[in-house]
């Protein structure tokens, strides 16, 4: 087998680049605990609205004893419910979201609040918002002909 010396050098460069990229991601994952939302938890999409944490009365933001906030939302055609969420800035926020109908995706532009919402499963995202003001939850997965109209509001208010 013939390998040109120049080619050999390039292989080292490729190996080095790949190692740097994988290494930086491994560092972020292991040392900074940065993982994509991976909460393997099931729920029955047919009955989730009847009782439990995703019944209408239990939706929205609640402040926990430790000061962090938990937001429970239902993503259903064609909005996120409740349609307005208010959270304090610079506070740990845990989103718990599920869908009673089809696939949805939720993203707040310019933030890492992003997850798929798959019926039958509960999605969980842990994040913090540093910028105060109004932002939007946009549905970013095709969910039917009204997909464009699926969005709702997020208000980040001063902490306190």
């Amino acid at each position: 087998m013939h390998i040109d010396p120049l080619e050999k050098k390039w292989m080292y460069v490729v190996g080095f680049m790949t190692a740097v990229m994988i290494g930086s991601m491994a560092y972020a994952a292991i040392m900074l605990n940065m993982h994509p939302p991976s909460n393997v938890e099931t729920i029955d999409p047919k009955t989730l609205h009847l009782s439990g944490e995703f019944a209408e009365d239990n939706l929205g933001a609640t402040t926990n004893p430790d000061g962090s906030v938990t937001v429970r939302m239902v993503a259903a055609r064609y909005s996120f419910y409740p349609q307005m969420i208010e959270v304090p800035a610079d506070t740990d926020v845990k989103f718990r979201i599920t869908s009673p109908d089809v696939l949805h995706g939720v993203h707040v532009p310019f933030t890492n609040m992003s997850t798929m919402v798959v019926p039958g499963y509960v999605s969980e995202v842990n994040t913090r918002f540093s910028r105060e003001g109004e932002a939007q939850f946009l549905c970013n997965e095709y969910c039917g002909l009204g997909h464009d109209y699926m969005w709702s509001k997020l208000k980040v208010v001063p902490k306190g």
């Binding site: 994988i22 991601m25 994952a29 993982h35 994509p36 939302p37 991976s38 909460n39 393997v40 938890e41 995706g105 992003s114 997850t115 798929m116 919402v117 798959v118 039958g120 499963y121 509960v122 999605s123 969980e124």
Partner: peptide, 15 residues
């Protein structure tokens, strides 16, 4: 990556 039905470990392996 953004899906709730798979755990972080397998996502990392596939990465």
């Amino acid at each position: 990556y953004m899906d709730p039905q798979q755990s972080a470990g397998f996502k990392f392996l596939h990465m």
